[in-house]
Write a protein that binds this DNA or RNA. Sequence first.
RNA 1: GCGGAAGUGGUGAAAUGGCAAACACACUAGCCUUAGGAGCUAGCGCCGCAAGGCUUGCGGGUUCAAGUCCCGCCUUCCGCACCA
Length: 867
Amino acid sequence: MADQQNCIQKPSPDSPADILEKVPGSSAEPRLRAADDTRYDPTPVEQKWAALWEKDLSHYASEPPSCGKPKYYVVEMLPYPSGALHMGHVRNYAIGDALARYMWMNGYNVLHPMGWDSFGLPAENAAIKNKRQPREWTLHNIAAMKAQMMRLGLSYDWSREVTTCLPEYYRWNQWFFLKLFEKGLAYRKKSKVNWCPKCATVLANEQVVDGCCWRHEDLPVEERELEQWALRITAYSEELLQGLETMDGWPDRVRTMQRNWIGRSEGANVDFKLEGGSETKITVFTTRIDTIFGATSLQLAPQHPLVAELVDKDPSKIASLEQMIAEQKKAREEGDIGLVDKKGFFTGHFAVNPFNQERVPIWVANYILMDYGTGAIMSVPAHDERDFEFAKKFGIEIKQVIQPVSGETPELPFCTEDGVATKSGEFTGLSCAHAQKKMAAFAKQHGFGEPTITYRLKDWGISRQRYWGTPIPILYCEKCGLVPVPEDQLPVLLPEGVEITLAGGSPLTKVKEFYETACPKCGGTARRESDTMDTFVDSSWYFYRYTSPISTAAFDSEIANYWFPMDQYIGGVEHAILHLMYSRFWTKFMRDSGFIKNDEPAQRLFTQGMVIKGGAKMSKSLGNVVSPDDMVARYGADATRLYTLFAAPPDRDLDWQDQGVEGVYRFLSRLHRFISENPIRVGDGESRDFDSSALSSDARKVQRKLHQTIQRITGDFQGRWHFNTSVAAMMELLNACMVKQELFASNSEAPKAFLADVQRKLILLLNPFAPYLAAELWSILGEDQNALLRYPWPQFDPALAKEDEVEIVVQFNGKVRSRLTVANDAEDQAVREAALNDEKVKEALVGKQIVKVIVVKNKLVNIVVKG
RNA sequence: GCGGAAGUGGUGAAAUGGCAAACACACUAGCCUUAGGAGCUAGCGCCGCAAGGCUUGCGGGUUCAAGUCCCGCCUUCCGCACCA
């Protein structure tokens, strides 16, 4: 690395050799070219085509639904406009662009748009740091990144560009919010929230990682109690879960992660009354109601509302309670929840088990979580590991009520459900599963419980005490209370020129002309909601907006129904839960509101691997960041893109190697040389037909390789998307052409139409991966410059791809002993005889006995021998 | 602890149960060159002068045949984690 950098000379003003290329905003040294460097120089070529394509946007634009072609909707996750693309983006877009171009060439009406997830905190941080307004800073970044994308030659339909921070977009966030509010899916709730002191705002559960903020991984979140807007995603818990079952176009990994996140758990709620005729009851959630006869205590979370009452005013209990809460908080902050020693104390109170009227002591324990289930459990030490550990430590009774089916005495705790209830009153003798059903029904019948399904998934808190986001369209009137902003008054515009600080709560409260307003109902004084929406709201539905960026609605339902669901969605796996769960929820809400018909946003999801270097994620602190601009300046956009596809299969992490880019660049140079030195042009009057059967054997070799290559690349697109092997196949094809280079020379005897066919198809195959060079070579061949994207993808002929002869290995017990060449698809019997008559085989057979001969067509003969 | 993915040359990697290492990178030698940071040719898993032998994290198994399938273990990465 260091060596390589030392090799690159500094440009000197008087050097005649230093030509070209400095991408705006790039810190890269321009690549110097020696005078006799014969390699392809991508910069002028790529810039020429980029300029052409920018002027002629129709070159990319999707066609109307009525075009008669089948639709194909492919979206790459839209970026946050941080100011510059990184290699992860390039990889993501290179994959999507290859697919879009391939589908275009296969006759589809392709929608391939791009946009900007442009609300969010970094703009505010930049505002504080550089005294620039978030809007101006953001729009500037968008312009810079759009230029980068254009330079990369990505085939986006820019007429549909979505910028979430602009009123024409976020007004529809507000509009949807009102719809959600009407349906009761948006509501206000006072709750303990995760507060990041650095972001000075609330985080959703999904945005808390190991007790820390997802943006500040070492900074523990604080707990605060706030009034918050929440979206009732839990109304769809079951459907979000069920949907995963049939979403086989999504990676299993993502589906599993979502399944775990939703965390469905089937069980029962059971009420335990306090002892002494009190009507106060403690509701516990259990998945093992079948063990309830073994419950020997109740355990409450330290934050359980009843605890304050139960500890009375006992100072020692209050002290241990406070200590417990503090420790739990600390453990949470350190991500150690689950490893903490179990602690607890007896409250001095008892409750009554409604099944057997036994009195059970009520404890408070640090291993009970207030935010799961009811925050209280019945403790069954004999049949739960955690309860067992706790009971042992504190001397609580352990009572076995489940027996193994075998009837043996089990070692406790005995936690499997493969057992039979014992000492359980009228339920004794029932299997666990059976007992669970009967007992839950019994509880319901007697009014002290019911079957219950608990989900880990929580409602989505969307209030953010920040400036740079969508204002929530709600007013608080002194008389009328909470009033939604009438639809015709949308958008609620985000005020400009606001002073931004991270201290002192929401910046919007300080903007008088925004904050203080009149009630639309009564005209009295009202104040506006000063919180803005989580930016995941923006990204939950942006891909619908792409289909019809109109001013009169969020999107046109009819057109959305034409394009949706997305055929392919492509992005990083880091969004497996947050963005992808919220978007699924949003789609279901819109479907139930009649705006769309699809149940899920995307038919297929592809999650590409990360781009890493030296085994670590690229980061400024590690100093291992590779800038796309530098790569584009040195090797061109084609080579940069091609390398991201070549270096690893797209679903795997890609370990960036600076020297690896050289390799694909060399390939492109060689290809450029191969065609530009001897372009085979077919004139208007000339026939493109030729007779394959009349080709020379060398020409046939090239033709065969061509058809094999088409077959492989087509297969890669249709199958696993292992574009690394597609690129390798193209390299092999070029190598095969170069070996027979004299075929393509001007004095060649091969039919011109054939040679032209090879060159043209080679370029067509290249087009999805390196569109600039493809366009350049296409025009060198004198073909219609603008038609490449719509030109049909080459078809392979299996007969032409087939080898005439194949080499067969002859094995003895699986070890290669000889090789022979036979006709392709030769009969097994003939191959067997040829093998047995082979000199080497005969030699090796001396003194041995043939047990069996296995012939695998076109592959091998395995002779099983003895002795 | 639970769940998932991965482990193949110096490196990135390839291989519908059928010749392991395609395609590249790096390296070595040669050609061409004032020069090489261009281009071209050849070599390049390991051991061995060779014949040949060995080789896909480790150990078993299935099979005529295993990188690939099955069982157990190890390592790395990812997700979840006192979820009742």
